[in-house]
Each structure stands twice: as C-alpha cells, then as structure tokens.
Nucleic acid binder design. Structure first.
Length: 271
DNA sequence: ATGGTAGGTACCCTA
C-alpha cells in the first residue's frame, strides 16, 4: 500500500488543465499540491478537476497572483489557509489526509515561498526582504509548533535552490536570487526548525544534478539545460523510513502550453 | 552586459 503526492507550480491553473490531465495519467497521485493557481476561489475550475478524479479540493486563491490548492482523491480534513508577513497573499494551505491504514493521517502543507525579485540585497529590494522575512517567520512558527501532532509533509515552490547540484552553475548563480548564501542559510534554518527531511535529496542523492524549473526565456530549454531545483518535498522524521521513490516529470516542460516548473511526485510506503 | 518569455490584468505587474 502506497501513498503518493505531487507538487506542481502550474503558473495559472486555468492555462494548465490539459497539463493536469497529463500529470494524472502519468502519475495518478493520491494528492496534488498546486502553486501559482492565479485565480480567485469562486473562479477555480473545480468541476473540471472533480471530473479528473479529484473531488476533494482545498483552495486559497486571489486575483492575478500567487494562489495555492490541494486536490485529493480522498477527503481533506480541516483545510486551513495561513498568511505570513501580515499579507493576505495566498501562499500556504494545509489539510489533513488519511493516507491509508498503514500510514494513517498525514498533515499536508502546500507552500509558495516568495520569489524575491532580482536585486540580491534586502536593503535595496523589498521583495527580497519579504522573502527572507517569510522564511524567518516560517522557521519560528515551525519551531514553536514543535513535534506534536501527526506526521507532516511540506511541499511546494520554495524558490530556493540550496545545493550546488540544484543549479546548472553554482559560479554563475551564487549572486542570483534563488541561490544566494543568505537565502540558503534562511532555508536551512527553516528546515532545521521543523526537523524536515529533504525527501528528494534523500532518494536522489546529494551530488546528482536535479532540476524542477527551466526559464521560459531560454530558446531551447532542454539543450541549454540551465535548470534549478526550486520545488521541494520535505517530510517529518517519522516518514523518513517510508520514502520509496521520487519522480521529476521532466517531459512536462514540453507540454503545450507548459509551466516553467515540472511536477514532482513522492511515493511513501511501509514496504 | 543585456534581454529574453509567460500569465493575468488593464495599459504594467510578477515571475
């Protein structure tokens, strides 16, 4: 018995309904976490997604920007949006889900961390300051929350590529937002605060290049392969021994029309 | 060093 969960930054759910169908055909996950849905809740395409086999939907959206959603084959328990840095910007949603008799109830968190703009200096760039404050606030929240409660999964577009193997060129990107030292340190503090295990790296290994995002601006994204691992799947320590497989659906980058992020699917199992 | 593309929105923002 396995439980599988996908994370995908769709860059507009309304532009990605065909892609969502392809994802479901390819991976058939139990739960799907979406970021950058870019739609208000009353316009969310819930009927289309119900007919794809995901009638249980928790959504937290706004007009034009951001937006997160959790889609599930099985009921979602007490879904709750969270807001950070005194903004109402729809970047975090969590819900309980029954992952089967063996795994029991899991708490699934879908997260979209701010991108942070272009200038890698929080004093000159308020978007980067917001990103760092967001990471810091999250870290304090998880630390205060402690270890009680069910096992947890934290997935989404974290907009940070912490390892050398997470970027196409460490030298070229070390001063580029997503791979600067200050945000890598802030992400590490967040990881430590919740005792999170990086499930992708646990399964893939630390050294193997692994990317989940390729810019729209590259002419031939696959040949240039200037990718970054911006999307992450973290689990609480009790789930570490159940990590079975991770799949980065690279082919999704060629679906028409593509998101610049590809879906990542994690499988958990007792055996 | 620069500009390249995509999406939503409303003539510009964010990524």
């Amino acid at each position: 018995m396995t439980f599988s969960i996908t994370t995908w930054n769709v860059n507009s759910i309304r532009m990605r309904l065909d892609g969502l169908k392809h994802l479901i055909e390819a991976e058939n996950p139990d739960v799907i976490c979406l970021q950058e849905t870019k739609v208000q809740d009353h316009l969310f395409p819930k009927d289309d997604i119900t007919s794809m086999g995901y009638p249980h939907q928790a959504i937290s959206g706004m007009k034009g920007y951001n937006g997160v959603a959790i889609l599930s084959k099985v009921p979602l328990i007490d879904p709750e949006p969270l807001h950070w840095c005194e903004k109402e910007d729809c970047r975090h949603l969590f819900a309980g889900v029954n992952a089967g008799d063996e795994l029991g109830e899991l708490e699934v968190h879908c997260l979209y961390i701010p991108a942070g703009g272009d200038i890698p200096d929080p004093l000159k760039n308020p978007k980067f300051a917001h990103k760092l404050a967001f990471l810091d606030e999250q870290a304090h929240w998880w630390a205060a929350r402690g270890e009680q409660g069910p096992e947890r999964v934290l997935v989404g577009d974290f907009n940070v590529a912490p390892l050398i193997s997470d970027v196409w060129s460490h030298a070229r990107l070390k001063n580029v937002i997503t791979h600067t030292e200050i945000e890598i340190i802030a992400l590490a503090a967040l990881q430590k605060s919740g005792h999170w295990v990086d499930a992708m790296r646990h399964l893939i290994g630390e050294e193997v290049p692994a990317y989940t995002w390729w810019s729209y601006r590259a002419k031939d994204w696959e040949t240039a392969n200037k990718g970054r691992r911006l999307d992450h799947m973290w689990v609480s320590p009790g789930l570490k021994s159940l990590l079975k497989n991770v799949s980065i659906l690279k082919e999704a980058r060629d679906w028409a029309p593509p998101s610049d992020h590809v879906p990542v699917t994690l499988c958990l199992s007792q055996k």
